[in-house]
Amino acid sequence: MTINPILKKDLKTKLRGWRSTILICCYVTLLTGILFLYFASSNMFNPRSYQSFNPRMAIDAYNILITFQFALLFIAVPAITAVSISSERERQTLDLMLVTATPARRIILGKIMVSIAHTMLLLVASLPVIGIVFFFGGIGFADIAKLLLFYLLTAFFVASCGVFFSTIFKRNITAIITTYIFLGLVTFGPFVGFLIYAMLHQRMPGGFNPVYRDFVTGLFPSPVFGYISFYFGSYGGYGGYIFGISDVQRQIEMLLAAETGIWKYMHPWIVNGLFSIISSILLIFFSSLALNPVKRKY
């Protein structure tokens, strides 16, 4: 199995010169800066403060970091992938790829790998910053490994969406806009839907008392649902207060603990990760089909 030529070309051209090195440095500096601001604002560096270091703060910092990276993933990956095929088309190089012996599926995969490589580069570059938080305690290696795996799967899904819309729309701008709208719907749609469903059922006799599997059925497509697994709130008895997500998170953890059978193992990130894998495979399949010139009718 040889390395995908599209990935190879991209790495060669993008890593040439100082541009990407500078970009990574900026990114890590930004993360460090955010952390510093948070610590500074919390009186930690004040010598006259009687308050000692609170491990709760490390956890909050961790929450800030992973949220920031999660948001970045949703902004950066579509920006790379939603133009991946349509820009080849605009540059008139798409036909040149399609006449080669490389099948359409491999072209699509190459484009996805390019965006994942870039995201992973940023994620790995930020590991030392997350390590600082790790140093202050509270978060284990296994948690970070799980987090990286979940981000990888999410990036895979987001990238597949971008490439898919890039394949079916001829123009860059249409592909970008559709990708963001689609991702917005997948991310927030289930929550809105669930909320409406809950409100309607609250008025019925007996009220609305969802169990864990109801949450899974309603929210599984949303990456934010999976992300809840990593948002530290209830572990160790500390309440997380950043972004006000902790209550939902704690409730979900409690509901999960009350589940029985296989549902007990259906952590939000596992359920959503599975959804990401399956939908990515489908999206790649349909993208290849749409790209295949002999089947394409225009």
Binding site: I6, K9, R91, T93, L96, M97, T100, A101, T102
Partner: peptide, 18 residues
């Protein structure tokens, strides 16, 4: 159909890979 950030030899190498 050319990429602006590739050299001539890299361009051909890319299609050789493809």
């Amino acid at each position: 159909g050319v990429y602006d950030d590739l050299k001539v030899s890299e361009y051909l190498n890319f299609y050789a890979g493809m």
